[in-house]
Nucleic acid binder design. Structure first.
Length: 506
RNA sequence: GGUCCCGUCGUCUAGUGGCCCAGGACGCCGCCCUCUCAAGGCGGUAACGCCGGUUCAAAUCCGGUCGGGACUACCA
């Protein structure tokens, strides 16, 4: 039994979104669960779409999620390079051999002609697909096309009849009839190579023995399997590898088996794509979701631990994950559940850890410098326990505590209108005096002041504390007031309370 | 149009002939608690797409039907 070798191979265009991340995660979980190898490969064979920024973003998002790879960009490995644009000589050598062996043939239709053919087929109520028009072209015709300046593509000759069975770890055996599989392109007119070729060559060359990928590729699997057979026949691939200075395949390499994963869909039930708003992994990071929680919830999209608890650490996921329990129906990525799980995980963080995690978000909001002063760090540490119960994401802490880090606060108009009226002026005057005179600057002592005032003035706590809250925080919402005030500089608090009296409506 | 896949509460799912008048989680609703916002406690809402069949018994098996999706690219 060879050691499992799995891979994640995104095309670097756009951001890594949760669908891709889920595919990456399942491969990673399987590798870690079985003690196998997780390969990360960049499939940038389509130069018109691939961008270096996207590749960097993918790598960053993978690192953020904690999906470390054993072989791939930045870590290298024995079967590299792991970026397909650096392997084009290999693909060229393979397709030349395929042509020499008669497995592929040159076809000269222009994209426009093909499009026209498809439309004609559609109109006639026939399935669109390459009809095999340029199979077995007479030499004279071929030369005539060349003389016209046409550049051929290379197409694989697919069987005309018979069936092929794909044994899928998730779907079980799925049968396809070869007559439904049209001759497909492996080499474009510009001599670059398509996904089919590059992907099959690399999976074989890198000894990948299990391909877990999105459901949308299930019907492409017969083509893939056909290519495996072609590449392995007469040592075609092995020779190409040796001729071009690539490492030989692992000695125990076997063609991969498959596991197709149900698609992740958006709220509209359409498959996820770049068009869908905030589904990029990086966007979830910016919003303050913890990577472990993202991993947890992603794992639950399509896989179930059975009757066991759904909230799991990454280690528990690795231990329990299995392909057998991957489902077959498309899942909607539920951000409400993500929020809930995230909030729960935040509650498990201790003060120091929470403060540390919060810091980058305060940095990004311009509330803290890159390197916080000891005073700022103490303040944040003191705020942590007050924040823990009331934030679902790390970014949600920012508006709640911004007033603690600013020199001046602007009073929210709606909050002023609602709370700085009636007896608020009287309340603020007394509060300012008593807070200024308070012996011990602590949460309990401050609460004592408010309670005393409430009793004397015959007001509820709310009537006393809300005006003060608005005065100091500028908003009607903040962490618990007495404890928060205790963390701030007393002079600042008193000054803000006095200043606010001017804003009280007559 | 063709091929393939899928169909359990709003969502993700558990469920492989009786343990299911269907369980969990998230959401939602109500009550309690409360200095705001939360959190917490308690309670509640809600699903086997439909029609036939097999069987003593079906969410589970079979047939059909309807609905959704993928593929059908010189994208991956």
């Amino acid at each position: 039994m060879p050691v499992p070798r799995v891979r994640f191979c995104p095309a670097p265009s756009g951001w890594l979104h949760v669908g891709g991340a889920r595919t990456a995660l399942y491969n990673w979980l399987w590798a870690r669960h079985t003690g196998g190898v997780f390969v990360f490969r960049i499939e940038d064979t389509d130069a018109t779409r691939a961008t270096p920024e996207s590749m960097r973003g993918m790598i960053e998002s993978m690192r953020f999620l904690g999906l470390d790879w054993d072989e791939g960009p930045e870590v290298s490995g024995p079967y590299g390079p792991y970026v397909q644009s650096e392997r084009s000589d290999l693909y060229a050598a393979v397709s030349a051999k395929l042509l020499a062996a008669g497995a592929v043939y040159d076809a000269y239709e222009t994209p426009e002609e093909l499009e026209e053919q498809r439309q004609a087929q559609q109109r006639a109520g026939r399935p669109p697909g390459y009809a095999g028009g340029h199979r077995d072209l007479p030499d004279a015709q071929r030369e005539a096309f060349l003389a016209e300046g046409r550049q051929p593509v290379l197409r694989v000759r697919t069987p005309d009849d018979g069936v092929v069975t794909v044994s899928d770890a998730v779907y079980g055996p799925v049968e396809f009839a070869w007559k439904d599989v049209a001759d497909f392109v492996v080499e474009r007119a510009d001599r670059t190579h398509t996904y089919y070729l590059a992907n099959a060559v690399d999976d074989l060359a890198m000894g990948i023995n299990l391909v877990a990928r999105g459901d949308e590729l299930l019907s492409a699997t017969p083509r893939q399997q056909l290519l495996y057979g072609l590449l392995l026949r007469d040592n075609l691939l092995d020779d190409a590898l040796a001729d071009n200075g690539y490492p030989a395949r692992p000695p125990d390499a076997v063609p991969p088996s498959f596991a197709h994963l149900p698609l992740l869909v958006g709220e509209d039930r359409k498959p996820l794509s770049k068009c869908h708003g905030s589904v990029a992994v990086d966007e979830f990071r910016r919003q303050g979701y913890l990577p472990d929680v993202l991993v947890n919830v992603l794992a639950l999209c399509g896989w179930s631990p059975g009757a066991a608890e759904e909230r799991m650490t990454v280690d528990e996921l690795v231990e329990r994950f299995s392909l057998e329990r991957v489902g077959r129906n498309p899942a909607y990525f539920d951000t409400a559940k993500l929020r809930a799980f995230n909030g729960d995980r935040i509650k498990e963080l201790d003060d120091a850890e929470l403060a540390e995690r919060l810091q980058p978000y305060l940095n990004a909001a311009g509330l803290l410098p890159e390197v916080a002063t000891p005073t700022q760090q103490r303040l944040l540490l003191g705020l942590a326990p007050l924040l823990r119960e009331r934030i679902q994401t790390l970014a949600e802490a920012v508006p709640l505590v911004a007033f603690c880090f600013r020199e001046v606060v602007e009073l929210d108009a709606a909050a002023v209108a609602k709370h700085l009226k009636g007896r608020a002026g009287e309340v603020l005057d007394i509060a300012a005096d008593r807070l200024a005179a308070l012996g011990e600057w602590s949460g309990d002592a401050i609460l004592g002041v408010f309670d005393g005032m409430a009793a004397e003035l015959g007001l509820g706590r709310g009537k006393v504390m809300q005006p003060v809250r608005v005065a100091v925080a500028g908003t009607a919402v903040s962490p618990p007031l007495p404890q928060t005030l205790a963390l701030l500089d007393r002079d600042v608090v008193v000054e803000r309370v006095r200043a606010a009296t001017a804003r009280v409506a007559a």
